[in-house]
Write a protein that binds this DNA or RNA. Sequence first.
RNA 1: GCCUCGGUAGCUCAGCUGGUAGAGCAAGGGACUGAAAAUCCCUGUGUCGGUGGUUCAACUCCACUCUGAGGCA
Length: 325
Amino acid sequence: MAGQKIAVIVGPTACGKTDASIRLAEALDAEIISADSIQVYRLLDIGSAKPTADQRRRVVHHMVDVVDLGDRGFSVARYRQSAQTCIDSVRKTGKLPLIVGGTGLYIHALTQPLALGSVPPDEGLRMELVLKERNDPGCLHRMLGELDPASALRLHPNDQKRVIRALEVCMASGKPLSAYGSDFQNAAGNEPPNDAVMIGIAIPRELLYERINARVDQMMEAGFLDEVKTLLKRGYDPSLPAFQGIGYRQLLDHLDGRLTMGEAMEEIKRETRRFAKRQITWFKRDARIRWFNACDYPSSEEMHREMLEYLKFRLYEDINDGCLS
RNA sequence: GCCUCGGUAGCUCAGCUGGUAGAGCAAGGGACUGAAAAUCCCUGUGUCGGUGGUUCAACUCCACUCUGAGGCA
């Protein structure tokens, strides 16, 4: 059932995923499904490092520009819903779905049996809980200790976002969040939504950081600041979740007078480096990923060729086996 | 040439009158199930410029030396 498999390419920001994905998509007759939590938003173009118009002409990209910038309700669950629809429709055309992105949770949503879909967020309740916590620090975590001891044990009292979510699930469904599972490696062996062949791009930290710094400079030259100014002029609220994206936050702070341009630039670079570190932490514990280190190859073309070979082998190994027997 | 003040973590610096070091930032490690580019947790990484000396014991005192800044000639 080779046709049932999907290919996935991951890696930290600025590692060269986009270039690699274009090459591989063309060679494998694939369409790309982005797994990037910022590129889903329309109008966030420069700062989210979206694929260029030319790249998007060469290969069909899904899950880019699919959410209104003003939408405050986008989530992993909605991502999985839409992305899975894309995967299925790409398959129907006989092409290969190629997932490309750096948002670990989104990749997980497509390749691991995450229990999503039961309890939608309840903004009213969340606000109420935030107020409660403000009046009585620590009360939420204690409350969780009563309702869902396993989750309370797992979550740090300061991780308010997750504590609130865990409470939300308990209160809405009467079932503790821990009952839905939290098994990163899927040791339980539940059926994943897709059978994925995964590859990752690794780069020595120092080199990656150089690339990040250079890319931030390029973004500024490409008119990042004007992009943000235009969005403000159009009336988009700086508090939108989409504006939590690195770069947007800092430039909004600069336009608001809270940061000088120099400080904003420095902070964007630093935050992007830290983000890359978190991505690396996430992906390196995923044993399914076959890593390709950019330094092991004389050129990126050479690396792309090796990736292609590996993907072809793994994607069609069942057919290969069939031929042998 | 002389005088003064510096040289301690990647950076900026603290370290009473001797008991082999500690802050901030940077950095590193980790977590992650409906905000995930979000959110949260943990961690000091060091030939204290070098060489000798005094001392039970030197980042600390002494001598010499290398080096940076300033001042006087």
